[in-house]
Design a protein around this nucleic acid. Structure first.
Length: 136
DNA sequence: GCCAACGTTGGC
DNA sequence: GCCAACGTTGGC
C-alpha cells in the first residue's frame, strides 16, 4: 500500500467535481517524475487530493481503481493516465500553511518540489494528515 | 499579476 | 554534452 498526493487547480477540476463524478481518469500529466509516480501506483493506493493555486489545501481522499495505461488524450506512448475514485472528504482541509508549520510535514515531496503534480506521501505523513483532517 | 523554481529545448 | 533561453507551474 502506497500513498500519493495529486494536485488539481479548482478551476480546472475541483474536488467537488470529483465527488460528483465518483470516478475519473487522471490524465494530461506531462512531467516525467509525475509520470513515474503514476506508473508506480497500485490499485487500492490512496491519493490525497490537493487544490493548488486556489485553496492550497488537501481537501479529500481518492483511491486508485485502475493502474497506469496509455493517456487517452495523446497518442504519444510516453504518457499515462490512471483512474481514481472518490473516497472521502476531509472534515477539515489541511492547508499548505499547516503543513509548512508542521515539522513532520514540512519535508513532504510536494512542499520541497511544489511544481510536481503527482508526488509520493509516506505512511507517517499520510496518517498525520488524516488526523489533522479529522478523519481516521 | 509578479516572480522564483524548475523542466525542456535547441544551438553550439 | 553543456548551457542559455524559454515556457510552465504555483505560491505570494
Amino acid at each position: 500500500m502506497n500513498y500519493w498526493l495529486i494536485k488539481s487547480e479548482p478551476k480546472k477540476y475541483p474536488f467537488s467535481q470529483m465527488k460528483a463524478d465518483r470516478r475519473t481518469f487522471w490524465d494530461g500529466v506531462r512531467n516525467y517524475q509525475a509520470r513515474n509516480n503514476m506508473q508506480a501506483m497500485k490499485k487500492g493506493d490512496y491519493c490525497l487530493f490537493y487544490h493548488s493555486n486556489e485553496g492550497k489545501e488537501i481537501v479529500g481522499l481518492c483511491t486508485v481503481v485502475k493502474e497506469a495505461y496509455q493517456d487517452p488524450t495523446t497518442t504519444d506512448d510516453k504518457w499515462v493516465a490512471v483512474d481514481v475514485a472518490y473516497k472521502s472528504t476531509l472534515k477539515h482541509p489541511v492547508t499548505l500553511e499547516m503543513m509548512k508549520l508542521s515539522t513532520a510535514l514540512a519535508s513532504m515531496a510536494m512542499i520541497k518540489q511544489s511544481r510536481l503534480s503527482v508526488s509520493p506521501v509516506t505512511t507517517a505523513e499520510f496518517e498525520l494528515i488524516m488526523k489533522m483532517g479529522g478523519n481516521k
